[in-house]
Simulated scan of single mutants.
Amino acid sequence: MRFARPAAVAAALAGLMVLTGCSNLGSLPLIGGSSRPKPAELGPNVPVLGVRQAWTTQIGSTQGLALDARVLGHTVLLASAAGDVAAIDARTGGDVWRAHLGTPLASGVGSDGRWSAVATRSSEVIALDGGREIWRKPVSSQAYTAPLVAGNRIFVLASDRSVTAFDAATGYQLWRQQRPGEPLILRQGGVLMALGDTLVVGLSGRLVGFNPDNGSVRWEAPLASPRGTNDVERLVEIVGRTSRIGDNLCARAYQASVGCIDARRGSVLWTQQASGGEGVDGDEEMLFGTEGNGTVLAWRRADGSRAWSSDRLQWRKLTAPLVLGRSVVVGDDTGLVHLLSRDDASPLNRLATDGSGIAAAPVVAADTLVVVTRKGGVFGFRPE
């Protein structure tokens, strides 16, 4: 048996919570304390790509929220931990609409442009039409993955590994599927997405394709399997974000592997061992990810072979990446946003926010790079 180093164990446990059935028994303590090795020195910023801050606004603190920024055209939908939900115009930073739900939230926002939905810490799903609340319904446990809104339905992946479909207009429950799993689960967003006429869900170490009309399983594609002798070692979850090119869908299994599947057939194309806890992004040729120790990796999408590895940001807690033109963009826990070359991870620019840590993977909307911090700052950056 191979023993994990204390720093690696602490990083692995930082996002975990204990569940027995639907009961939250509290957060696991960190083993060996919460200290991490000193981050690598960044050196002076030499901007190869000119980028300027175009606007900034506020959503409210996102601390403790499994935030996911949802992009629809030129609009970015965001939520705060306290229960504020906003649709922000990425062209100006102004509000399209904003709602205060009056209850703490557990997940980010899902939306199709009309209907929007969030999950609360009190195990409810709340639906909105525009910025107006229309219904609330209980779910079996907290949901850390933003609900999926598609086909006039709202799909919820709860932390007990149940998947529930609601009618978006009325809140009527259409179906519910329950999947058994290991006793630990990640307190962060997973995979819940539409791919053609299939609902794709991350359940334990598998991507599972459901019929969205009735919840029947069409296929299962394993990216990782539980191993080890205790609950921590056996934890396997698929984490967001994912990278999709046509029917080719790539994802990460927490602290275990990255891999790509053919989502039309549900067959695994390749997997590679990887020890990160955040999702991936990519393009037709490459797939990019960040590891738990701050290493940034690139794999060739065709076969999973390693293209490059960079330790320039080692021991910084990094977000999932965003592929943006010639750049791979990642945020860190000091509020910096790093633009790295997709060819070799050489630095292209470094952007500052409010110093509180980047809360979610960066997104792009209306030719604007949008990042959100733990303090709730929302920043829009554009090329000079």
Rank of each mutant, 00 (worst) to 15 (best):
L67T: 14
L67I: 15
G73S: 07
H74S: 09
T75P: 01
V76A: 05
A79C: 13
G83M: 13
D84T: 10
A87Q: 01
A90S: 14
G93H: 05
G94M: 04
D95E: 05
R98H: 08
R98C: 11
R98A: 13
T103M: 09
G110D: 10
G113N: 10
W115H: 09
W115C: 00
S116F: 06
V118A: 01
R121T: 02
S122H: 13
S122V: 12
S123Y: 04
S123C: 02
E124A: 08
D129A: 13
G131D: 08
G131Y: 06
R132F: 01
I134V: 14
P138V: 15
Q142F: 08
P147S: 15
G151I: 12
G151K: 12
N152C: 01
L157H: 03
D160L: 02
S162L: 12
F166N: 00
T170N: 06
G171K: 09
W175Y: 11
R176H: 04
Q177Y: 06
R179P: 00
G181F: 04
E182V: 07
P183F: 01
R187K: 13
Q188K: 13
Q188H: 08
G190M: 10
V191S: 10
V191Q: 08
M193A: 11
T198L: 05
L199P: 00
G202D: 01
